[in-house]
């Protein structure tokens, strides 16, 4: 640290902990994730299929419950991608997020909404919009968000 920084700045490092409630639908989601199933919620009025599941259909303004949860395919179609190539502190861990990593937006088969996730490809020329992707599960699932560490690109010949 240079003299000027020493004189002109105060360092402040606070670890500000929280424990967030996730709601009943997410509890069910993680239960099923352990069985390698991906669950969303379906609005009982307009039939819109939401991923992630949540308790409110914003369009109909009515409630969805655990009974309204349905399973989605682990496969989906890519609508956009990027390769993140910049450093930052990851608030999930407090450490630097390793980079580069692939990052996609896609719609799971059966869902009406999109989702974002890591993709195991860091060469942007290897991605194609419209390409099929699939969730990769950890061998031993634990019922948490990291059970799906990333999605993989499905090669055309596989389909």
């Amino acid at each position: 640290m240079g003299k000027k920084e020493k004189e002109f700045q105060i360092k402040w490092k606070t670890d500000l902990p929280y424990r967030y409630s996730i709601g009943k639908l997410a509890v069910k989601y993680f239960e099923e994730l352990k069985n390698k199933k991906i669950m969303g919620s379906k609005c009982p009025k307009c039939d819109k299929r939401y991923m992630p599941p949540r308790a409110v259909c914003a369009n109909c303004f009515i409630e969805m419950t655990v009974e309204d949860m349905i399973e989605f395919s682990p496969k989906g179609t890519l609508v956009g991608f990027t390769v993140v190539n910049y450093p930052f502190i990851d608030p999930n861990t407090g450490g630097m997020r390793p980079f580069p990593y692939g990052y996609g937006i896609f719609k799971l088969d059966g869902a009406d909404t999109y989702m974002m996730h890591f993709v195991d490809e860091t060469d942007h020329t290897k991605f194609k919009i419209g390409q099929r992707v699939e969730a990769v599960f950890k061998e031993k699932t634990e019922g948490d968000i990291y059970d799906i560490p990333y999605f993989r690109l499905i090669k055309e010949e596989e389909e």
Partner: peptide, 10 residues
Amino acid sequence: IDLTISELVF
């Protein structure tokens, strides 16, 4: 503990 903030507000 069983409610998200969104559910609480809804």
